[in-house]
Design a protein around this nucleic acid. Structure first.
Lengths: 201, 201
DNA sequence: CCCGCTATTGTGGGTTTCCACAATCGCGAG
DNA sequence: CTCGCGATTGTGGAAACCCACAATAGCGGG
């Protein structure tokens, strides 16, 4: 596992302790003294997970989280808090945070949590890649092809599509064939299955 | 909206205040003095939503929630708490609770929340109904028909299915036709679309 | 034993899908 | 103006799908 865990906390002792904990488990980690510093550097490529303190000088944890979400951030975010704050916990979880942990925490449990978060992120990265690949294929379709595909997906016969679009059935066959070729599938059934799999995730 | 809101709280004043609040907004409500009482009566048919206090004599809110989930309960559950308890909030939310609200709460916000929860439940009820209908149709298939359908859904030609099952292509045609008839669709595309839509929800 | 149901198979004919080969037209870019 | 691309269409032939009509065999229940 090569993903880096990014620890954002204005307390150096906490950052170092966590970095040491993760390093001792073979998990690469990097600390950031503030949300601002992290947002400015914004290391995205190798990020496996963010461990984010709620209370910080400057931008708070939830504020950093909002910024990340606003820019389409995908890596999981685990909040740490030393103060019981139910509304913040509820709000961040409902907004998509991976988890919310009170200090003091159990080392093993935090590591397990981080490992789970990284694994989930990895799975999602694969799915996102597939979805982007599918999107690229869809982008190669001409307008007409895309239109024919939409009607194909409704289970229409070629002659029904021809009638709907006011063109010859031979033309529908041409478009249909090109759609299947560009989408890399054998037939309409495979196309529906492919689109459905990625729609569901 | 005919769904009932079930309020579970061992404090009669809270139950009555909430029942009054909901009634004043045209939302039918019923109070229960304990989790035990609710679990014993277990009104399921008209339940739109459960509002559940965390701290109670006997079974606690989270314990009631666990019992409900264990029996496949579907209606949304909103927790109320007078004590900041982050781990409980996090755990119940991650276990599927609809929301977690600290007392004192804003009347309008709680009502909005309940209305949202009921609407979500209604949507899910419709989907569950569709899924059950689909399941019933699938149950009408003979073993052989179900087997042919599985291969159909993979985009196989009749002759491919015939080869895989070691039978004549004519037989595959017969099974295929009966599958489409029993599933109430025009062709394999409609069948895949139908199954995918309900799989995704 | 009879009946109903499922599984299986065949024949013949119609419909739909698929496509190689071929061609025209319109539009936009260089 | 030329070229490339997309949209459109036709011909002819093969493959795949669909099904009415017909039949046999096996199994379980009454």
């Amino acid at each position: 596992m090569t993903s880096t865990i990014h620890i954002i906390d204005d307390e150096e002792s906490i950052r170092d302790a966590l970095a040491f904990l993760f390093a001792s488990r073979g998990l690469p980690a990097q600390g950031w003294p503030s949300g601002e510093a992290f947002l400015e550097a914004l290391p995205g490529q190798d990020c496996g997970c963010v461990v984010l303190d709620v209370r910080m000088e400057g931008l708070s944890g939830p504020e950093v989280f909002d910024r990340l979400r606003a820019m389409g951030w995908k890596a999981p975010v685990i909040f740490l808090t030393g103060h019981a704050d139910v509304p913040v916990a509820v709000q961040t979880l409902k907004a998509g945070a991976f988890d919310f942990v009170e200090k003091p925490f159990n080392d093993n449990q935090l590591v397990d949590l981080v490992v789970k978060a990284i694994a989930m992120h990895e799975n999602q990265r694969v799915l996102i890649g597939h979805r982007q690949d599918l999107q690229r294929r869809i982008q190669t379709l001409s307008n007409r092809e895309a239109e024919v595909m939409r009607l194909m997906l409704q289970g229409n016969l070629n002659k029904q599509i021809a009638h709907a679009l006011g063109i010859a059935m031979r033309t529908v066959e041409v478009h249909r064939s090109r759609v299947l070729e560009k989408m890399g599938v054998r037939n309409t059934t495979e196309l529906v299955v492919l689109l459905a799999e990625l729609d569901a995730s």
